Amino acid sequence: MAKPQHILQLSEEQRRSFVDSFDRVLSDIDGVLWTMEHDVPRVAEGYSALERSGKQLTFVTNNSVRTVEQCVRRFAKIGMQVKPEQIWHPAQSIVSYLRGINFQGLIYIIASPPFKAVLREAGFQLLDGPNEFIEENYESLAKHIFCKQPVRAVVIDVDFNLTSPKMLRAHLYLRNPECLLIEGASDRLLPVAKGVNIIGPGLFSSILEEASGREPILLGKPGRQLGELIVGHYKIDRPSRVLMVGDMLAQDVGFGRQCGFQTLLVLSGGCTREQLLAETDPRHIPDFYADSMADVAQILGGGPRSHV
Rank of each mutant, 00 (worst) to 15 (best):
N63V: 05
V25R: 04
Y47H: 00
R99G: 08
E69C: 06
P90R: 03
V43K: 03
Y47E: 02
F59I: 04
L50T: 04
M36D: 14
G54H: 15
V40N: 00
H89P: 01
T61P: 07
H38V: 02
E37G: 01
M80H: 04
F75T: 01
V82S: 00
H38E: 13
F59Q: 03
V25P: 07
Y97C: 03
I29W: 07
I94Y: 02
R73L: 12
K55T: 04
I29F: 11
L26R: 01
K77C: 10
R42S: 04
R52V: 07
R42I: 02
I78Q: 11
D39F: 15
V19P: 09
V68K: 14
Q56P: 01
T67Q: 01
D28M: 07
C71S: 13
D28W: 14
H38D: 14
E37K: 12
H38P: 02
G46V: 09
C71I: 05
E51V: 13
K77V: 10
K55G: 06
E69G: 07
E37N: 08
S93G: 06
L57E: 10
F59K: 07
Y47W: 13
V25C: 05
V60I: 13
V68I: 15
G46A: 10
A44C: 03
P41E: 15
L50D: 01
L50Y: 14
V72F: 01
C71Y: 09
S93R: 11
F59P: 04
S53I: 00
W88T: 00
V43Q: 02
P84K: 12
V32H: 06
M80K: 09
F75I: 00
S64T: 10
S96H: 10
E37D: 13
L33Y: 15
Y97Q: 01
A49R: 12
V72I: 15
E69L: 09
D23N: 08
S21C: 01
Q92I: 11
D23I: 02
M80R: 05
L33G: 03
P41H: 06
M80V: 00
V72C: 02
